[in-house]
Amino acid sequence: MALFVLQRLAALVVTLLVASLVVFLVMEVLPGDPAAIMLGVNAREDTLAALRAEMGLDKPALERYLIWVGGLLTGDLGRSYTYGVTVWELVGERIGLSLPLALIAIVLSTALAIPLGVLAAAKRNKAADVGVMGFTQLGIAIPNFWFAMLLILLFAVYWRVLPAGGFAGWDAGFWPALQTLLLPAVALALPQAAILARVTRSSVLETLGEDYVRTARAKGLSRRAALWRHAVRNALIPVVTIMGLQFSFLLAGTIIIENVFYLPGLGRLIFQAIAQRDLIVVKDLVILLAASVVVVNFLVDLLYAVLDPRLRGARHGL
């Protein structure tokens, strides 16, 4: 187990190093003069010089890279050129929206997908299965931002029960804030739930054919008990991996959905930073988001080992 963790940890560090190197090369070395990109063609020479100095562009690339990585590790992400505050402050401000949004979406999609997937597997080829599979085909095919717009049309334009966008802020109280996050979370959750339900279904179908499910039935367990205690429990192990992989899609979805609903989160921040050519913010956010994907998948690998005892200890008894 310790060896397994160390291996995964080493892979994590390598991936992060390579990622940071690529982001740095793409954002700072490839463009030649990042300051010129940030300020545009009509910039005055003295402003350019000032920005170059602030970004430390006079130093060699390697030194700049080391300073940047060092800053990432110590929590010093630099200062946004357009907002005039540190990137860390910007992130801190907006993660209070993006993180809860992502969590609600994950909870919603899991709560929807796993029961549906199990139901479809248990009722294979029956009406319930066909219905669930049809729903998942639609869920995968609907672009999440269009689904978000349809939700706005229904709930905000016609029924006027939920706001069309914006964020009330947690200061406004838990429920008002949650209300503004509800439609975005549903829009994020639907495609995830569709994929997850399909994965759950095929995974449960696979375990239902396993010998140990027949053993459980031979013990006298009812069909339902064998399904939930043996088939589902084991089927969820691969499902967890898929949930980890889905995290990166969730991030991508957040960038779009926050824009559909005008939510001031990390996704919208990165989008606005592009519009304002604030390369400092873009660079930091890209590496932070990429790092979160890598770290989440690392944690999923560990969870996998917790769920599957075969990955844990050494053999015994022989």
Binding site: E210, D211, K219
Partner: peptide
Amino acid sequence: CRVRGRRIAMVFQEPMTALNPVK
């Protein structure tokens, strides 16, 4: 279900797969 396991029990051919690996 009240007969299976209670009055009639069964031992299977493949002990490698007949047991649930996560319990």
